[in-house]
């Protein structure tokens, strides 16, 4: 591993850390505009983080070390994921070593820790949130895997850099199966990131919470880290979407020169702005589903992903 490669890797991680709260702020802003409210500033999530980091931690009496360790685990796994996913450039030492399946493993680790921590204190809402999260998770994961399998079949590799590079090299290779996987992926993204058809991120009603219910007992820096991790998770998912379906602008390892990075950064920012708008539009147009409808929604996602595979086998084999 050369120092230059390490530097690139670090730059991408720091960029992800910086952009994730901004992306969350952008989504909040778009949402406010669409609902005819005056929007909070773009840097609102940062102010929130600063406020939370300055506060004193309040812990429940029966909190175990697991409860205190979980925010760091969450944050760590999300940073690891941000290091693997090629959002800015593909020539990353981490991404060459770890493939997309390990990435799902990282997300699963975060989910298990968060659910255990939510049940650790023993409040009713924490347990309720954890159970719902596990139900959504076990349905969303196979759908995400199927989406990945389709991409693997299409481009013959399980490593993200190879996927992105082959896609950018053959832009004419628009396979019909990509259509199905893209829709399935958006559904998984909405479900995994506590977005509206499954969970309302802005809710104040404990009975309908899923993700928020698990964070109810956290305060101060623990809460700040958990919030930052969840904004990073959304950013990571959106970046996976870019890598699989909109890879244009990501600098490949064959490109050299100083002008490459600004161009790919500009492309990334444009895509993020666009993705935020699309996400908010979907959220504004749809109503929150009952919890018992969530399996139906995710079964649909899984089905679409499998259909994508089938369509690829039928049409793409020619």
């Amino acid at each position: 591993m050369t120092p230059a490669a390490l530097l690139r890797q670090l730059a991408q991680i720091i960029l992800a850390l910086a952009l994730a709260p901004l992306f969350a702020g952008w989504i909040a802003q778009c949402r406010a505009w669409l609902q005819n409210r005056s929007a909070p500033p773009l840097t609102q999530p940062y102010r929130m983080l600063r406020k939370l980091f300055a506060k004193e931690v309040v812990l429940a009496d029966n909190a175990s070390p697991l409860f205190r360790a979980t925010p760091y685990v969450l944050f760590g796994t999300m940073v690891l994921a941000a290091a693997i996913i090629p959002s800015l450039l593909t020539d990353l030492p981490f991404a060459r070593v770890v493939d997309a399946i390990a990435l799902i493993g990282a997300f699963a680790t975060a989910r298990v820790f968060l659910s255990l921590a939510a049940m650790d204190i023993g409040t009713a809402f924490g347990t309720l949130g954890a159970r719902r999260e596990m139900m959504i998770g076990f349905l969303a994961e196979p759908a995400l895997l199927m989406v990945f399998f389709n991409a693997f079949l299409l481009f013959g590799s399980t490593a993200f850099p190879n996927l992105v590079e082959r896609y950018t090299r053959h832009p004419s290779l628009l396979d019909p199966s990509v259509l199905f996987s893209a829709i399935a992926f958006v559904m998984v993204l909405l479900a995994e990131n506590a977005r509206i058809p499954i969970d309302n991120p802005a809710t104040h009603l404990e009975l309908t919470m899923v993700h928020e219910a698990m964070l109810l007992e956290y305060s101060a820096r623990h809460l700040a880290l958990a919030e930052w991790a969840s904004s990073l998770k959304l950013y990571n998912y959106v970046c996976i979407g870019f890598a699989l379906f909109l890879p244009w602008g990501i600098a490949s390892s064959t490109q050299h020169g100083l002008w490459v990075l600004p161009v790919s950064l500009a492309a990334l920012v444009c895509k993020l702005l666009l993705a935020g708008g699309v996400l908010v539009t979907i959220e504004t147009l749809s109503a929150k589903l009952r919890v018992f409808r969530a399996p139906e929604f995710l079964a649909m996602a899984f089905l679409l992903a499998v259909l994508g595979l089938l369509v690829h086998l039928l049409l793409g084999a020619a």
Partner: peptide, 26 residues
Amino acid sequence: RTLERPFPGTDTALNILAACLLLISF
């Protein structure tokens, strides 16, 4: 896909339309 036809995009476009049809059915 083989691309020696007069309109190389037609094939892909038709496949995508067929996929859309299946999607609408579901």
